[in-house]
């Protein structure tokens, strides 16, 4: 990353501080290191944007599901089992030929963990949070994509409770595809609104 300040190289004392805090809180009986291991494994290896991709693919393939998803995102996503912390109140916003949606948390880092996993660093960082609400098209350019001027861009700022998921447009040339195969087209960024699904030629 080309930041002036390198966020990936913390001073050694932070490493030591976290280690000491874990040890101190373990002695106090407030935490259990093996439970921490389990949590890390869950969020590093088991919960990620593939969940959201399967939600999107199902909405593309099943008009009744899509209707439910747009009416009550939380319940429709729960049908696939992706509920829990940071996904308690989900709103799904649909991209159309005339509307492109983007999501942000300007105040902190709110993000739908059960469907997308933990947020990328750029989503939680000052440049994205400050800029996307005043210059969403400029942000899209930084991601190397653009939407036509004729399309309205809507930016959704998460509140303390609500989490948004973008339902991207289904790519052309995917008629008759299975949900599994459709899900391969769905990128994390396409569900944040900073990107688009892959085209069929990219995965074939």
């Amino acid at each position: 990353m080309s930041h002036d300040h390198d966020h990936t190289a913390p001073p050694a004392d932070i490493e030591l501080r976290v280690k000491a805090l874990e040890s101190l809180l373990t002695e106090k009986g407030l935490i259990d290191p093996s439970a921490l291991d389990e949590l890390v494994d869950t969020y590093e290896n088991r919960i990620g944007p593939r969940n959201g991709a399967l939600v999107v693919a199902k909405a593309w393939a099943d008009p009744e599901y899509k209707k439910r998803l747009l009416e009550d995102g939380t319940a429709a996503i729960a049908e696939l089992g992706y509920s829990g912390v940071q996904g308690e109140d989900m709103v799904v916003v649909e991209n159309t030929p005339t509307i492109h949606n983007m999501t942000v948390c300007t105040l902190c880092s709110c993000y739908p963990w059960p469907t997308l996993g933990l947020p990328p660093v750029w989503y939680k960082s000052a440049p994205y949070r400050s800029k996307v609400v005043i210059d969403p098209r400029g942000v899209l350019a930084e991601f190397g994509v653009s939407v036509p001027d004729s399309k309205e861009v809507r930016v959704w700022d998460s509140s303390a409770e609500l989490r948004y998921l973008v339902l991207p447009e289904r790519p052309a040339g995917t008629e008759g595809w299975s949900e599994e195969k459709l899900a391969d087209l769905v990128t994390r960024d396409s569900m944040i609104g900073t990107g688009f699904p892959k085209s069929p030629s990219e995965i074939q």
Binding site: M1, S2, V18, K19, L30, A35, L36, S125
Partner: peptide, 28 residues
């Protein structure tokens, strides 16, 4: 506030201490 500069790929956690700091939240 500078460029967003999204990397093509990035790990869920960049350092071991980030794993531990993240996970401590839940039991506390």
């Amino acid at each position: 506030l500078g460029p967003i500069a999204p990397p093509a790929q990035e790990p869920v956690f960049a350092h071991e201490w980030e794993r531990r700091a993240f996970a401590m939240f839940v039991p506390l």
